[in-house]
């Protein structure tokens, strides 16, 4: 089994195999985004209570979900990097951090914009908002730590350690609205019960979440491919690839 996985972990193989994925992921993102935006802004009915302001949900919730999902991907990659010292895992972790930070920022900002008309305030220090803000600081800290360390591999490993330390924040964010009294309401979709959102409103939300996910993989993949070339810069396969006269990028 490990032999099979090791083939994918081989940087050269991954670089070659992933060449086509980027295109498909970008296309999928564009289509899903278009469909989700149309659904969210046009076809979904306005909310009985929040009116059209609720449409911010189509940005806010996918961003928030991604802020957690990307962190878990980084934690997984970090664990693999630390235990099995797989370079691809190091590269994936490093590539994901700015994306995760962006999603967290987006969740916080759109949440704030949504909160002003609905709650009556731009910000409160309740458990949900505070823990999500801590997540942003974690992402930034991971990126700073990685950047501060000269050696690429040591930097990635330090980042992995910090990522794993911060993992405890993820369940805190999710369960904050249940464990403590918060201004932010409880979960609408990610709970064991039936989703408490009308189906016509739910479908664009799921589509947007899917679109954000393919976006993450597309963008991370681009960074990963660059990272692979940097890691393997002195190998023959990279020299062949690069020295072939034309610089092969994405047209």
């Amino acid at each position: 089994m490990f032999a099979f996985l090791h083939k994918y972990a081989s940087l050269m193989h991954f670089y070659r195999l992933s060449a086509r994925w980027s295109g498909w992921l970008a296309l999928a993102t564009a289509l899903l985004m278009a469909y989700g935006l149309y659904g969210g802004l046009v076809t979904a009915p306005a909310d009985y209570q929040q009116g059209d302001s609720f449409r911010i949900i189509y940005i806010h919730v996918p961003s928030a979900w991604m802020s957690l999902f990307v962190y878990m991907c980084m934690a997984g990659a970090g664990a693999i990097a630390l235990v099995w010292k797989i370079k691809l895992a190091e590269i994936w972790l490093r590539a994901s951090a700015p994306l995760g930070a962006s999603f967290t920022f987006l969740a916080l900002v759109t949440g704030s914009i949504w909160g002003k008309p609905m709650w009556g305030t731009w910000w409160v220090w309740d458990a949900r908002l505070t823990s999500e803000l801590i997540l942003l600081f974690l992402y930034l800290g991971i990126m700073a730590l990685d950047n501060a360390i000269e050696d690429r591999r040591t930097g990635a490993r330090a980042a992995a350690v910090l990522t794993l330390i911060g993992v405890v924040n993820i369940p805190i964010i999710h369960y904050s609205v249940e464990w403590w009294s918060t201004l932010h309401q409880g979960p609408t979709v990610s709970k064991l019960d039936r989703p408490s959102i009308h189906i016509d409103m739910l479908i664009p939300l799921l589509v947007m979440a899917f679109a954000f996910t393919t976006f993450y993989f597309a963008a991370a993949l681009a960074r990963v491919r660059g990272g692979i070339l940097a890691y393997d810069r002195n190998t023959n396969w990279v020299r062949d690839l690069v020295g072939r006269g034309t610089v092969r990028g994405h047209g």
Partner: peptide
């Protein structure tokens, strides 16, 4: 993010 990601990949290729 999309622009920076693509640029990152290209920058490495150019540098190498």
């Amino acid at each position: 993010n999309a622009v920076l990601a693509r640029r990152a990949e290209r920058a490495v290729l150019h540098a190498l």
